[in-house]
Design a protein around this nucleic acid. Structure first.
Lengths: 138, 138
DNA sequence: CTGGCTGTGCAACTGAGTTGCAAAAATCTT
DNA sequence: AAGATTTTTGCAACTCAGTTGCACAGCCAG
């Protein structure tokens, strides 16, 4: 994903592409996996955590990222390519490595559907496998 | 689940059944759904949060409860009936209501399995549907 | 250039959860 | 049963992630 693409993406979601914001999107592009606030903070020492917090809130509001549980005890943000502007749909499964604490997208594996009992109305689904990732097994 | 059953369960996991601990297990039995630390704290005003924290850590260690993401941004504990003493396997799906913030067990719906790419080694799976629960739709 | 709006950086705050520690309760030993 | 030892409890203090208040900087428009 080029710098131009990143700026286009932001514009398309009505987000003004400031220097800090571009750095944050770049972090996602570089890692191509869901990141926690803390991970972004560590990777971008120059950016204040309040800016990161507010930026993620903005991205979320504009559906540029979506949120998922991080397998450990917090949440992570995933850059959302395929989402339409007002919905979060990008239903692949995720893998959380309990050794290194990273979360990976398994883009090729769609979330298998289930049918819910009467009365339950689904909005989104999260399928998370916890275990050991290839890197950590070596 | 009777008081005797609760005590048996604790003994079976090598947990001494003190008054506080019985209260905490009772909270799970009463709600029969996964609870967050805060929910337990609210329900049991008489029990200090440090005791709840330590008790949950103990239960977890002894595989009397297991942990799952709470759909919002924290974690919840679920009383584990069917788990063996040293493994957490109780694979049904969960439903998180984004209106009332409660998490429900859909015990009848097993988690559909997927096959992972080479190198990924699964330990546990979490399938969580977010949406509106029957009570909140009324 | 000037006035207003948006974004930024620091510091102070907040709230969930944990830890240190001494008192209380339970258990063991003789 | 009395005393010694271990476990559990309750309080307060602390920690850490994340958020908010606020003043200043940067940017665009007239």
């Amino acid at each position: 994903m080029s710098q131009t693409d990143i700026i286009d993406l932001m514009m398309h979601h009505g987000v003004k592409p400031t220097a800090n914001r571009i750095l944050i999107v770049n972090a996602f592009v570089k890692e191509h996996r869901p990141l926690s606030m803390t991970e972004i903070e560590t990777q971008l020492e120059s950016v204040d955590k309040s800016v990161i917090s507010r930026t993620l809130a903005l991205f979320r509001e504009r559906h540029m990222v979506h949120v998922l549980p991080d397998g450990g005890d917090g949440i992570r943000y995933e850059l959302c390519h395929s989402c339409s502007d007002d919905r979060d749909d990008d239903a692949h499964i995720h893998f959380y490595c309990s050794r290194c604490g990273k979360t990976f997208c398994l883009k090729d594996i769609p979330v298998p559907e289930v049918s819910l009992p009467d009365g339950y109305q689904a909005e989104s689904v999260n399928y998370m496998v916890t275990g050991i990732c290839p890197d950590c097994r070596r």
